[in-house]
Structures are given as C-alpha cells and as structure tokens.
Design a protein around this nucleic acid. Structure first.
Lengths: 118, 118
DNA sequence: TTGTTATATGAATGACTGTTCATATATTCA
DNA sequence: TGAATATATGAACAGTCATTCATATAACAA
C-alpha cells in the first residue's frame, strides 16, 4: 500500500530519514494539531474569531457583524465550542460568546504577519 | 437572505456592533487568512511540515518518514508549494523540499503549545 | 397560557478535498 | 537509444463540510 516497500531499498539519505523519524511527534499529536488548525481554516469561523478578538458578542450581534445567517453562525459557534476556542455565558435569552484563550490572538497575529509578508 | 433585515431592528448592542464592524479586517484579508490556516489543517501536510522543520528532505525521504505514498506526498507538496509554505531545489532526478519561511515554525510552536495546554 | 424572541439543531444538498491508480515527464546510466 | 528511477499530474471516487431550511428549545412578556 505505502511505497515504503518500493522506496526503502533506495532511500537517498538513510541517516537523515532515521533522525527525522525519531524527532517527529507521534501521529496522534500531529493529527490533533491538524484538527486545531482546520478550525481556523474557514472564512466564517475566522470572521467570528476576529470579531471576538475585539469584544464579547451575542449570536445576533455576531451574525450582524460578519453578515451571515443566524443558523450558519450558530453551527460554526458549535464547531468553535467543541474545539474549545470560544466560551459562552447565558443571560436570559441571549448567549454571549468570547475567546477562550490568549494563544488564539497570538496565532491569528502570526498568520496575519505571514500573509502580509507575501 | 441574511438575517440582518430581521435582526437589525433588535440588535442588542448597536454601539459594540458598529465598533467591531469598523475594526474588523476586510473580507479578502480574512478569507486569505482562512486559506492560509486551511493549509495546516490536514494531517499529511502537518506531517510534511513537521518533518521539514528538522531537515531538508526529498520526496522519497518524505514519503518514507511520514509513511504515505509518493503520489499523496507529491500532491500535498503541490498544495504547500502553491501556499508558498515550502520551496524546492532540484538535483538530478531528486527534488529537495524545505520550509520557505520562519513564521511557519513559530505558528507550529504556538499550535502545539495551545493543544498541549488543553 | 399564549405569543414573541434568541439560539440551537437535524436533515438535505452541493461543493470541496485527499487518496489512489495509471500515466507522463525528466534525468541518469549503460 | 533504451532502461531505470524520482517526481509530477490528471481523472475518478469517497468522504468531509458549510450552508440552508424547517423546526425545536428556552426564556421572557403580556
């Protein structure tokens, strides 16, 4: 299935491959990391996160700010909640969302720096 | 279509909404940012990036290190190339890939810190 | 209780994406 | 030139995902 069988015979750099294999984090961790970034990989969610960088907001406000339907926002907030990127508090009928963590701001900043440099 | 029509009548916080709307980056930038993060949002690509954090590698080495087929790796390298996350140099039949930019290491580090804290 | 409003959610749909398989290209070697 | 090897790529397929629509839930007000 994998081409290890084919390729292991003629690996170009045995030593480098082995060294990298040792240092590489395990699959579970890397898969979790991919899932974490995947959460940032959608325009609607990025807009929600960006908006929440500025201020706590309720669902209706959010849907207004980023110009998406209430349902779409609600679905994406669910995703963000499950990824533990946002937290929420309830006040009567209204639910207020905010960012869960300061790393998020840092990651967004790094991303912006990167794409601005290109 | 959007629920602005419904919701603008009874926005809970007019002032906050307007302030956030002003500060929020434009759609194009946020969309680019989402695309940037989307590139990190796949296990195969994260593995490739992680491997390249350690050392420059050719396609065959990469496919060995992360245990994926040569074709799958090649396809994902194309994606990473288009996102300008990796660069490559050719030496005979062999193509060596490496990370394009130091921001990438920083972003990976931040991501790891985040998921490790949860 | 009844009506209204804010939010959540399930189902359906269309679009997107990653892998595989087969094949093409390019380079080296005999 | 012909064979072998490293990499790239197009097509097809399967799985994933974001949105919409309809509806449910929950809280408040009359």
């Amino acid at each position: 299935m994998k081409n290890q069988d084919v390729c292991s015979v003629n690996i170009v750099h045995h030593d480098v491959v082995n060294k990298v294999k040792e240092i590489l984090p395990n699959d579970k961790l890397l898969s979790d990391l991919a899932d974490f970034f995947k959460t940032f990989g959608d325009a609607t969610r990025i807009k929600i996160i960006s908006a929440l960088l500025e201020s706590e907001l309720c669902v209706c406000d959010l849907s207004n700010v980023i110009n998406s339907s209430q349902s779409a926002v609600s679905h994406q907030l669910r995703t963000l909640r499950q990824a533990r990127l946002v937290k929420h508090r309830k006040e009567g009928k209204t639910v207020y969302y905010s960012l869960d963590d300061d790393h998020i701001k840092e990651i967004m900043k790094q991303g912006l720096v990167h794409i601005s440099h290109k």
